[in-house]
Structures are given as structure tokens and as C-alpha cells.
């Protein structure tokens, strides 16, 4: 059966979601107390300066007029200029978002590399020493605050042993991967803990299923049983969880990017909200919303592939 109609339907569903997000963000950011001009100039702003800046930015127009102007901009692919950075929002997003995408992708890969083999190991040795040790170690990882874990890794592995640079972002791609390894590891550990626990119980559940017993009785090799029957079925719930965790991962990236001095979109978002940089917040939210929606879409597709009943 082809998945194409399903994918097409899901993409169409994305459009109203994104429009809704646009409206919400446009209104929410303006509901925050304080205006961009005051945030920009700060305590020394004179009334005349604030009025002049508000006029230059079109913030003295009624809200509906501002919104229509914003919609027109979005429709033409222009997200306006950042108020504090004085550069097109599109350019800044194009500069900062890939950093966060690389960071979270690396974190997701590292989390999976930890979670899948260890979940198998723990499930197959259920309640044994190995299982207890794995679960114990991950419990610690899960309960440690991200910024603290990051600082510990920085102090020991970077400043102490000099295996990694102390934060920052490199110039070339391999250099960047090298710079982002520690922050990605920091982000990955708590995600890996959640995924591992979920996958472990799923595997235990599947191992007791009749079709596994049947496969064994047929005389299939145990490795084949584990991959084709156990893993595929156990993964369904983990994939959903993984997709949902992307939002959390992006949230964690805000803190990780600050601790590790990574110039990503998370840090930019925080700075822009504090600076009441309306166009920047709007543009960045739109970009992140597209990113998260695409991840959900991808999750759904993978799920539909694992379990074709989903696409029906």
C-alpha cells in the first residue's frame, strides 16, 4: 500500500495549524508588558526617542493593521527586520536555526545509540544485575538538571582532560560536530533515559507475545526474531514518544546553548523575547513551528511504515 495519500493529507493539515500559531504568537508577544523601543534603549529612553522608534517600526498603527501587514510580509516570504540586530529576520533565522537543528539531531542520534542497545540488554536480562545497573545510571541522568550536567561535562571533559573545546561553535562542518558533541551529549542523556525505559518495557511486553513464541517455534534464528518481530513492534510507542520529545529537546537546547556558548536559535529566542523584538520572535516561532510539525509528520510516517494500520 502506498503511503503517499496519507503524507499528502498530513501536509494539508499542517497549514491551518501554522496559521493558528502565527495568530497566537502575533497576539501573545504584544500582550507582554513593555514595548520594543523601551527594551531597546532601556532606562535612559526619552519619550521623544520612544515615539520616534515606535513610529519607525510601525508600532503606532492599530493592531489589525499591523497584523495585515505582517500577513502580507509572510505571504511574500519576508519576515521583516530584527529590531535589535538590525538585519532581516530570514537571514538571522537561516544563520541560527541550522545550528539548533544540528545540535538536536546529534542529540537525538546519540540518545538512540544509547537507548536502543541498552534497552535490549536490560529487557533481555530483566531484573538482573545488568538491568538494575542500566536503569540506575539512567535514573541519575534523568534527575540531573541539564545546565548542571553540562557544566560537569565541560569542567571534566573539556577544561580538565582537554578532549573537547570549552563551548563555542567551529568554523568547518567537522569542527562544528566536534564542538557540538558535548552539548549534544548533555541534551541526549535525559532523552536517552526516557526512551530507554519506554523501549525496555515495550520489548518485555512484546517478548511475551504469542507471535514471538510462534516465531521461535518455527525455528527462526533469535537475532532475526529480535529485529523483525520484537524491535519493530516495540518501537511503535517509542517512536511516538521520540517525536513528542523533539519539543522538549528544543526547550533543553535553550539552556544547553547558553551554557556551551552555542549560537543557536534557542538562545536567540530568549534574547528576542526579553528584547521585545516582535518580528524576530514571530519569525523564529514560525520557523520552529514548521520544524516541530515536520518532525511530527516524519514520526507519523515512520509509524505508518511500522504499523500500516495507522495510515488507514
Amino acid at each position: 500500500m502506498s503511503l503517499l495519500p496519507y503524507i499528502f493529507r498530513r501536509i494539508l493539515q499542517l497549514i491551518p495549524t501554522l496559521v493558528f500559531i502565527l495568530v497566537v504568537v502575533f497576539v501573545l508577544v504584544r500582550l507582554l508588558p513593555g514595548d520594543p523601543a523601551s527594551a531597546l534603549i532601556g532606562d535612559r529612553a526619552l519619550d521623544a526617542d520612544v515615539q520616534r522608534i515606535n513610529h519607525e517600526l510601525g508600532l503606532d498603527q492599530p493592531l489589525p493593521v499591523q497584523f495585515l501587514y505582517f500577513l502580507k510580509q509572510v505571504a511574500t516570504g519576508d519576515l521583516g527586520n530584527s529590531l535589535s540586530l538590525k538585519a532581516p529576520v530570514i537571514d538571522i533565522v537561516a544563520q541560527r536555526l541550522p545550528v539548533t537543528i544540528l545540535l538536536t539531531t546529534m542529540a537525538a542520534v546519540i540518545a538512540l545509540l544509547f537507548a536502543v542497545p541498552l534497552a535490549f540488554l536490560a529487557a533481555l536480562r530483566q531484573d538482573g544485575v545488568v538491568d538494575t545497573v542500566i536503569r540506575g545510571v539512567f535514573q541519575v541522568g534523568l534527575s540531573m538538571p541539564v545546565f548542571y550536567l553540562g557544566l560537569v561535562l565541560l569542567t571534566v571533559l573539556a577544561a580538565g582532560l582537554h578532549w573537547f573545546p570549552v563551548g563555542g561553535y567551529g568554523e568547518t562542518f567537522p569542527d562544528r560536530v566536534y564542538h557540538l558533541f558535548l552539548p549534544a551529549l548533555t541534551l541526549a542523556l535525559s532523552l536517552a533515559a526516557v526512551l530507554m525505559r519506554n523501549l525496555r518495557s515495550a520489548i518485555i511486553g512484546v517478548l511475551g507475545a504469542e507471535y514471538v513464541d510462534f516465531a521461535r517455534a518455527k525455528g527462526l534464528k533469535s537475532r532475526l526474531i529480535l529485529i523483525r518481530h520484537v524491535l519493530r513492534n516495540a518501537l511503535i510507542s517509542t517512536v511516538t514518544l521520540f517525536g513528542l520529545s523533539v519539543g522538549t529537546l528544543l526547550g533543553g537546547a535553550v539552556i544547553t546553548e547558553t551554557v556551551f556558548a552555542v549560537p543557536g536559535a534557542g538562545r536567540l529566542m530568549i534574547d528576542s523575547i526579553y528584547g521585545r523584538d516582535y518580528p524576530m520572535v514571530q519569525g523564529l516561532t514560525l520557523a520552529l513551528a514548521v520544524l516541530v510539525s515536520l518532525t511530527f509528520l516524519l514520526t507519523d510516517i515512520v509509524q505508518a511504515w511500522l504499523d500500516p494500520r495507522v495510515a488507514r
Binding site: L151, L154, T155, A158, A159, H162, V166, G167, G168, T258, V259, F260, A261, R267
Partner: peptide, 13 residues
Amino acid sequence: IPDDATRILKLQS
């Protein structure tokens, strides 16, 4: 490097 501790670590290393 917005984080104070990281800025100092980077100087020390």
C-alpha cells in the same frame, strides 16, 4: 559566552 562559568572555564583552559 553568556554563561559566566563557561567564560571562566574557557579562560582557564
